[in-house]
């Protein structure tokens, strides 16, 4: 592309505009501390203690649980879009490519270490997912850690010989199950509150029952979907598991498509 004087002038104008914009925005952020107030976040900190010990998880999955549903769907949409880029489900149809052989052999140390490391990563990821309501972590980071384990083995051993062999169908199923856990737990809250209280609330925490409106415990059985755990966080761990499955499946799916496309260029 040749750059004429005319275009040079434009580049300078664009540069000056961007400098002005970034100056204004950075200056605003610099002044921001004078105007900052606690607001809603103070309230969330105040009230979240009676749901689960980890305040961030409570904000993420209870007060703003529906936003988290949206964020999960950003991931799902992005994953499906990536698969469409590689032709899966596009209007022209998907041509299955042959899984490429590994061209570069990995070294002995890599082959020796990758599998134990991957097992460790998967176990660690499961811990992060399951402990989301009491310790830092949750579905997003946990799922990402598990997917890292998968990615490690795929990179080292290749798609054909990897010990963690997921098929495409399996990952899609996993992602579907994860998304449905989240969506249907919300629907359960809606149905339960409508049944016991008259008006429904989507994603109501039926396990904790923070506003005492479904009273299921009073009838002699335990609250719906109360996670069996001394802290009684209600539905939060289930949502974490759903998100975890989803993130794990989604990222692994992207890794798989990228590996399949490796030889194309």
């Amino acid at each position: 592309m040749k750059t004429s004087d005319y275009q040079q002038g434009r580049n300078i104008i664009a540069g000056v505009s961007l400098v002005i914009a970034s100056f204004v925005i950075l200056r605003t952020l610099f002044q921001f501390s004078d105007y900052l107030i606690p607001g809603m976040s103070y309230l969330y900190n105040l009230y979240s203690g009676n749901i689960a010990p980890n305040v961030i998880t409570v904000i993420l999955f209870d007060f703003r649980g529906y936003d988290t549903l949206g964020e999960t769907f950003i991931l799902i949409t992005a994953v499906i879009t990536t698969t469409i880029v590689f032709g899966w489900g596009s209007l022209k149809g998907y041509k299955k490519k042959e899984t490429p052989e590994m061209t570069e052999k990995s070294t002995v140390i890599q082959r020796l270490m990758a599998f134990p490391l991957a097992i460790f990563l998967v176990a660690f990821g499961v811990t992060i997912v399951l402990g989301g309501h009491i310790s830092p972590g949750g579905g997003f980071p946990g799922g990402a850690v598990i997917a890292t384990g998968y990615f490690l083995t795929v990179v080292i051993y290749g798609l054909k010989k990897t010990p963690l062999r997921f098929t495409h169908r399996y990952l899609v199923n996993l992602s579907t199950i994860g998304a449905l856990i989240f969506l249907l737990t919300g629907v359960l809250g809606l149905v339960a509150t409508t049944y016991y209280y008259g008006t429904g609330y989507y994603l109501y925490n039926t396990g904790v029952d923070p506003y005492d409106i479904i009273h299921v415990g009073a009838f002699g059985w335990d609250n719906l979907l109360d996670y069996p755990d001394p802290t009684h966080p209600g539905i939060l761990p289930y949502l974490n598991i759903g998100v975890g499955l989803n993130v794990l499946a989604g990222l692994s799916l992207i890794a798989m498509f990228l590996m399949e496309a490796r030889k194309d260029e």
Binding site: G39, M40, F63, G189, I213
Partner: peptide
């Protein structure tokens, strides 16, 4: 309106939060 997760409108919050209005929605 639909109150997600059943978090109601509340008016009981301390001065420290510095919210300018007397009642706020807690959830989405």
């Amino acid at each position: 309106v639909h109150l997600f997760s059943g978090h109601l409108r509340t008016g009981s919050f301390p001065e420290v939060s510095k919210i300018l209005i007397p009642e706020v929605y807690m959830g989405i």
